[in-house]
Nucleic acid binder design. Structure first.
Lengths: 245, 245
DNA sequence: GGAAGCCAATTGTCCTAACAAAGATTGACA
DNA sequence: TGTCAATCTTTGTTAGGACAATTGGCTTCC
């Protein structure tokens, strides 16, 4: 039975069960524990780390709910098989590209702090004539234009600067202001490009466009972003993991 | 403060926290509790139902993780706003269309019970030369061709008949055999159609194609389906709800 | 040698208890 | 009257203990 080294800092403000869950997750994700490997039982783990059983159970439950571990009463706990280990995440294109080592570059093409756009306003649950913060950006991976992004945000974000946007992800800017997108509804489709889009994304004649519109909400259910994005079909695809029930 | 009637059966083999969670969920889903309504606090609920606080917490945690409730320390618990209460589901195109009242029709174009297709076999974690069950289907909404679907299944499904497939959804056929797809990884993209696809889907020149490939797994992580689908861009789009963390 | 039954190991459920932290409310004081 | 501090309410974290249910292996008996 492999014992994973775990360090618990009782002085830290982060909950013990979460410290533990993080370190166990890391051990699985970096391959220290392989799929199918047996996992130290919860009593032993609690004893070894000087934590109570409920605390250890809570940490393990977190990994189980993410599909990293599988438990069977009377038998034990094991690392789940490879394919189950993924989860849906709310990420942005920027973060996706960074993870793949693609070195994303953002070019801000247009900013309008008083944009009246009924379609966007209604997606944000605001009156149709509400002036919104609007930004159009082009994302490049190296030299290749990858995505053309149109985003509308509620008026309280109209002080966002071009510099902030150029430096990285829109979600990072929002999070820096204490706003956390928690749920988003996305619609993914395809269509023919318009001529502006063809030019901006450097498309050849006949090239299709992959499109996504997104409405993102915070924990209270307040709409915080409406996005309308176009992607080069040969540069981007959406990976989605769906679960039953 | 609305008190929801809850009946707990301590003699039942179903866990108390689950009985409670079910009844609370029902109250939200049938509209007894409306979005934004305050929710009885956990101490009061525990007291009223004669349950311990951890048991009540566990039930509430279940609803929170499904996005039905929102909690804030020091403030209380409330029913989440409408937009949050949705969940990703593993459904099929057939079921999607049925829900929208579109009256789907399936036409089986090709069946091969011994198809050797290395790309599909490897997606199913089988040796590349494994003979697979292959079916090509065209889905129509009324008269309009909507999707062209290619699916490969492991050899144990090679007794599936054309009649079964014509009658409805592939997933329904699988479920009737006691196989439950639980997780699927989908990749959604766009591309130019090939000429067969143009003909089958009755596309005009220059029309793009929306594509999706899917690998579906059962609870044990066994691959049970590989699908490669094309959709008419003007007839179909994917709705995806993503959650943070 | 095989089968039935028992036992140990492990996870699952449930309870009591205590204290911490965050937000809202109240009240005292300037 | 306005502001700050104390207090109350509510959720969050952690602990410890008891017993139940399931599984797998071992032992014993035929």
């Amino acid at each position: 039975m492999r014992q994973i080294p775990v360090l618990i800092d009782r002085a830290s403000p982060v909950p013990l069960y979460h410290q533990l869950a993080e370190q166990l997750t890391a051990a699985i994700e970096d391959g220290t524990l392989q799929p199918g490997d047996p996992f130290e039982n919860e009593l032993a783990l609690a004893d070894r780390l000087d934590l109570s059983r409920p605390t250890v159970r809570r940490a393990i439950a977190e990994l189980v709910s993410r599909g990293l571990l599988v438990r069977r009463r009377g038998v034990g706990t094991a690392v789940a098989s490879e394919v189950i280990h993924r989860r849906d995440e709310l990420t942005s294109l920027f973060e996706d590209m960074e993870r793949k080592g693609k070195r994303p570059v953002t070019r801000v093409l247009d900013i309008n702090r008083q944009s009246v756009t009924p379609r966007a306003a209604s997606a944000l649950n605001l009156p149709a004539d509400t002036p919104l913060f609007y930004v159009e950006r082009l994302r490049l991976a190296g030299d290749i234009p990858t995505a053309l992004m149109h985003n509308w945000l509620p008026p309280q974000f109209s002080d966002i600067t071009e510099e902030e946007l150029a430096s990285g992800s829109l979600y990072a800017v929002l999070r820096a202001r204490g706003v956390r997108p928690v749920v988003a509804h996305q619609t993914i489709g395809a269509r023919k490009p318009r001529s502006v889009e063809r030019k901006r994304l450097d498309l050849s004649p006949g090239d299709p466009l992959l499109t996504m519109t997104r409405r993102a909400y915070d924990a209270a259910g307040t709409a915080i972003e409406f996005g309308d994005h176009c992607y080069r079909y040969d540069q981007y695809a959406f990976d989605v993991t769906v679960h039953e029930r």
